[in-house]
Simulated assay, not measured.
Amino acid sequence: MSIPTDHPYDFDPTYGFEFDALRALKPPEAPPHFDDFWRTRYLAALGHDPQPRLSESASSHPGWQVQDIVYTSTDEFQIGGWLLVPRSGNVRRGLVVGHGYGGRDQPDFNIPVEDTAVLFPCFRGLSRSRRPPISDDPAWHVLHDIDKPERYILGGCVEDLWLAVSVLIKLYPVLEGRIGYSGISFGGGIGALAMAFEPRIDRGHLVVPTFSNMPVWLTLPTIGSGHSVQNYQKTHRDVLETLALFDAATAATRINIPLLVAVARFDPAVAPPCQFSVANARPTSNHHQVVILDAGHFDYPGSEEQHALLLEKVRRFFRTP
């Protein structure tokens, strides 16, 4: 492994953490009402009819039938995205794929799964799910209703994911109990929060997940969304009380399905200590695998080889039984 040393940042994106120190990090303890907060939201979301509407997509691919999709999430929020169905074979599994904070302008046609219906939702306020007054700029999106725990935008995005699972089951009832989740960065943090309370997902893949170990997340320099929240905290000292409810590392301690987590030792956008707090939340075993990348949110020598190896692990992880 070769961690980048040449970079343009005025801080060290390893934050001085050696590997042993990263592996020793633990998630924060949950606030007393953490579980009740999320279980109540989950049960409410479960009662929503997502009313998925499919239409022909401008995108096309020789191996996938591509359809545009819109479904109704909580707060009557219209969530847009894409549904991919294999042109050959049978649909035997489902997969929801979350995106990073840059949003998504098309589905990922290279996702390494077979016999799988793949749903690519755009979380509320972003890309195909833009809606005023929510900003699609990550620096503002991450602050939307942060002063109201019940309304904070991250909670709505978790509900969007839960409703995405409902969409797949509504379209393909045979998929119940055979749906996975894959999410990177923003989608990784949202995924950890969602999977902690979503028994309909049977396995999850998280890459450089954010919103993790919030007490640390608020203290480390970053070019990511955490920078906005750090500035907000200067005039709102109690923000950590809200953020404790949205800690992906805390949530990960409650995930009991197989996990494949990819974390980076160098990352200017999502600090490695925060990523590793998610990876360390469960004991490593055949059901919980951790892949170490040299860097995240940064191009580096050897990245293609490392990501090719990760892609093969993902292929095996989501292989149709």
Rank of each mutant, 00 (worst) to 15 (best):
V263D: 12
F276G: 04
D267E: 10
A271S: 13
P268C: 09
A251Q: 03
S277M: 06
I255D: 02
P272L: 06
L260N: 10
R282Q: 15
V270N: 07
Q289L: 14
V278T: 10
L259A: 08
A252C: 08
C274L: 00
N280T: 04
F276Q: 08
L259N: 13
A281R: 11
A252V: 02
A251L: 02
N286S: 13
N286G: 15
A252D: 00
S285I: 06
H287Q: 14
S285A: 12
A249K: 11
A248R: 04
A271I: 02
Q289C: 01
N280M: 05
A262N: 05
T284P: 00
V270T: 14
S277L: 07
A249E: 04
P273N: 13
S285L: 04
N280I: 04
V278E: 08
F266N: 09
A281C: 05
N256A: 12
A281G: 07
A252H: 08
A264C: 07
A271P: 13
V261W: 02
H287P: 00
A249C: 09
P273V: 14
A279R: 07
T284Q: 12
A279P: 10
R254N: 08
V270A: 03
A279K: 07
A279C: 06
A248N: 02
V263G: 11
A248L: 01
A248I: 03
Q275R: 05
N280Y: 07
A262S: 15
R265P: 05
S285C: 10
A249I: 12
R254H: 14
T284K: 13
V261Y: 04
Q289I: 15
A251K: 06
V278L: 14
V270R: 01
Q275K: 01
D267V: 12
T253I: 00
A269T: 14
A269D: 13
V278R: 10
H288C: 03
R254K: 14
Q289T: 14
